[in-house]
Design a protein around this nucleic acid. Structure first.
Length: 438
RNA sequence: GGAGUCGUGACCGAGUGGCCGAAGGUGCUGGAUUGCUAAUCCAGUGUGGGGUACAACUCCACCGAGGGUUCGAAUCCCUCCGACUCCGCCA
């Protein structure tokens, strides 16, 4: 959520950002609606407060008169108070309607963009920052062929359980998935200073609203029928959701920042609207594994944190020797809640192209405002500071399934075996390669 | 699943219809004092919103959440959520 003051007081600024995002007219118009509702709201609040103030004064008088035993006088004042009662109720009713609308509008307006984010229509307009590593010159079989030849992926039987977009890994394949998870977590906790978390994989509606998946993108989520603990509930699409919301509603101590968490979770996505895309293999699944990094920082430190966090994801790719490039997403491709976003794309030799394996976003104070996450800055001149919205960031470090794909394709040997990157071998029980099982 | 206790400010903890935005304590901040540390004393110390210069000031709301009763509710009633204890069940 944007700062409601900016939204109401500087509509032109907000609209300019929406244009850079390629937003439709309805959304742009909603900024003006928000402004109009805010004026109405403020007028009603002023009137209501005045009436309430009068009522409070009179009620106090009643209390005094009752104690003195002057019942008749008290009754007279009661009648006066009763006169204003209906108007107060009417104002509260109107106000509730307006606040509901206003909140709905505010929740549907995406974040402001960083100056580095260029206008654009979609993926094709993203800006490449740099490349690392040298892609192998040849084209390989896809990871599906490689894995099935090795007997580590059971493409046929997986559909028995839940249909398309699920996988069954076996033997060294399952081991490789698990090794990657542990490798990622160990690097982030031991070398990058993160605290590891294990979190719930189900989240309430309000939690998804906090990070920005809702209210706009409900169709992308798996919803639990009947809800949970009395509220609507969904399977998490990323660890970002439970981890970022961990401090929702809190006022953090400035001294505790930055807070850096890493968490492994499965991620569940309906992939509505991507029918026909990446149907074969492990690239696009309804359920996949990911290790996520999440930061909480003071807003002025967010940019530096964004670079550091992205560097931590890059470090993993480099350790694994996987060629990649770093992209800055354009206004047409960046997500709803993000202020600025880098995608890391890994080289897939079978496709002859780079594919997203990590997305590292700086949300500024957008998510924090939605979930009531604040921090108290250090005192200024001995005076206690007011709480301010904190900044949040997150990034994949990395998507596990896609890393497994990248390893299979980048390390497949002419004999069909797959070499294990040296850095990963300790997590694979020391084996140097996966060879076809007899 | 059954039975019970309970949800108050950064924390602990009073408060059963008006004088409570909320005693007291702890913590924190500033000051005084003490030749060090400790101690002592004084003062200050919630959040959100409206008006105004997003100042001073002032008004309104907030005692788990949402409703209700009342001239008036932290205090009474209802629903929900959450925590804890005991029993049962279970990985």
């Amino acid at each position: 959520m944007l700062d409601p003051r900016i939204l109401a007081d500087d509509p032109d600024l907000v609209k300019a950002h929406l244009m850079r995002r390629n937003a439709d007219d309805g959304l742009i118009h909603s900024v003006d609606e928000f402004g109009a509702l805010t004026s109405q709201r403020n007028a009603l609040i002023a009137e209501g407060d005045e009436l309430r103030s009068a009522r409070n004064t009179l009620s106090k008088q009643i209390g005094g008169l009752m104690r003195e035993g002057k019942r008749d006088e008290a009754e007279q004042i009661k009648a006066k108070v009763a006169a204003g009662k209906d108007r107060i109720a009417a104002i509260d009713g109107e106000l509730e309607t307006i606040e509901t609308q206003r909140h709905a509008l505010a929740m549907a307006i995406p974040n402001l963009l960083h100056d580095d984010v260029t206008p654009g229509n979609g993926e094709e307009d993203n800006v490449e920052e740099h490349r690392w590593g040298t892609p192998r010159p040849d084209t390989t079989d896809s990871h599906v062929e490689i894995a099935e030849r090795l007997g580590i992926l059971d493409g046929e039987r997986s559909t028995k359980i839940a249909g398309a977009r699920f996988a069954v890994l076996r033997g060294a394949g399952a081991r490789l998935e698990r090794a990657l998870i542990n490798f990622f977590l160990d690097v982030h906790t031991n070398e990058h200073g993160y605290e590891e978390l294990m979190v719930p994989y189900i989240a309430h509606r309000s939690v998804l609203e906090g990070t920005g998946q809702l209210p706009k993108f409900e169709k992308d989520l798996f919803k639990l029928e009947g809800g949970l603990n009395g509220q609507d509930a969904f399977l998490i699409p990323t660890a970002e959701v439970p981890v970022t919301n961990l401090h929702g509603g809190e006022i953090l101590d400035a001294a505790s920042l930055p807070i850096k968490y890493t968490a492994f979770t499965p991620c569940f996505r309906s992939e509505a609207g991507s029918a026909g895309r990446d149907v074969r293999g492990l690239i696009r699944q309804h359920q996949f594994h990911k290790v996520e990094m999440v930061w909480f920082v003071a807003p002025e430190d967010a940019e530096a944190a964004h670079e550091a966090l992205t560097g931590h994801a890059e470090a993993i790719l480099q350790k694994l020797g996987l060629p990649y490039r770093k992209m800055t997403l354009c206004g047409g491709d960046i997500s709803f809640a993000a202020h600025k976003c880098y995608d890391l794309e890994v080289w897939l030799p079978s496709q002859g192209t780079y594919r997203e394996i990590s997305s590292c976003s700086n949300f500024g104070t957008f998510q924090a405002r939605r979930m009531g996450l604040r921090y108290r800055p250090e005192p200024v001149n001995g005076k206690k500071s007011k709480p301010r919205a904190a900044a949040t960031l997150n990034g994949s470090g990395l998507a596990v399934g896609r890393t497994l794909v990248a390893i299979l394709e980048n390390y497949v040997q002419p004999d069909g075996s797959v070499m294990i990157p040296e850095a990963l071998r300790p997590w694979m029980g020391g084996i140097k390669s996966i060879v076809p099982s007899a």
